[in-house]
């Protein structure tokens, strides 16, 4: 063959064939990657990096119920998956999430001791939400509280994406 270059041991035809195969590989790898990432993304309804959170203001209780120092009310709205505790900490009304910051169990509010206890890994949180003992590293999530016309509102931090709404037909 006249095109053969002896030193490299490769023909012109072979060279182009290799380039073609190389391009083919790159293109098919790209296509596979693109399709695979779309497939994976379709499995992540809440997005690659998690849904952004929004605050939703919800009426919780009249102020008269929580006026006294040390008083507490547990607010529960099962349909919308909302639960929080309102505590009057020395005249300052605060709302806490009852989800343990360790592994997501529900903490109990022990009124007599004025502490939160987590049954899963025996963590204890103080009335202001800070960690007293046990494995958690963060204090309990606190929700903003607003008092207006004698009514207490809690701003719940919620993911924007709620799968239940698709089952109720609201998301369509």
């Amino acid at each position: 063959m006249e095109n053969k270059s002896e030193e490299k041991g490769i023909t012109r035809r072979g060279f182009f064939q290799r380039i073609l195969v190389g391009f083919g590989l790159i293109i098919s790898a790209g296509a596979t990657g693109a399709i695979a990432s779309q497939l994976l993304k379709s499995l992540m309804p809440s997005g690659w990096f998690g849904e952004p959170y929004v605050y939703r203001k919800v009426y919780a209780a009249p102020i008269t119920e929580i006026n006294q120092v040390g008083a507490s009310i547990i607010f529960e709205d099962k349909a919308n998956n909302r639960k929080a505790i309102l505590i009057n900490n020395g005249g300052n009304i605060q709302a806490f999430s009852l989800v343990c910051t360790h592994l997501g169990c529900q903490v109990f509010w022990e009124k007599e001791r004025g502490k939160f206890l987590c049954p899963c890994h025996t963590a204890v949180f103080a009335a202001d939400g800070s960690v007293e003992s046990g494995p958690p590293e963060k204090s309990l999530d606190q929700y903003p509280v607003e008092i207006k016309d004698g009514l207490v509102y809690i701003s719940f931090r919620e993911p924007t994406w709620q799968p239940e709404q698709y089952f109720r037909g609201e998301g369509l």
Binding site: P45, S46, N81, P159, Q162, P163, E164
Partner: peptide, 9 residues
Amino acid sequence: LGGTEINLY
């Protein structure tokens, strides 16, 4: 989980 928390999915 199919979301940020335990849900229908």
